[in-house]
Amino acid sequence: MMDNVGGSSSNIAENSGIIREQDRLLPIANVGKIMKQILPPNAKISKESKETMQECVSEFISFVTSEASEKCRKERRKTVNGDDICWALGSLGFDDYAEPLRRYLQRYREQELDRANNPPKRG
């Protein structure tokens, strides 16, 4: 009974085109965990801080993605890939973040190659 009500509510929300909070922002628990990693173990983070950081990080993601998407639009490409994100960070002046992200992207692609060459035995 309750599940059906929730399902119909979800359909209504999607039909009206409203962007819900959980679609627009990162999950607040994950944001809190990331904030806690840099703090001492006994530190406390207020709910207001997490909500403010939710807004900031979501806006930053849209900011960088918008810059990368503009580059793809000019080059008539439809897919935004990792290189475009690294380029966008450099283009916006976040050079200190672009370089570590390029190294992360390189290691990520190496892991993908290893996974493709060595499929798990279960599969």
Partner: peptide, 29 residues
């Protein structure tokens, strides 16, 4: 303040966790 925040976190955060864990958006009234 800590007590109030803890009380609020216990009520709201599991739902957000559920969203991130399952990946299914399920809005409730």
């Amino acid at each position: 303040i800590s007590d109030n925040e803890a009380d609020e976190q216990q009520q709201s955060e599991p739902q957000m966790q559920h969203l991130s864990a399952n990946g299914i958006s399920h809005a409730g009234i």
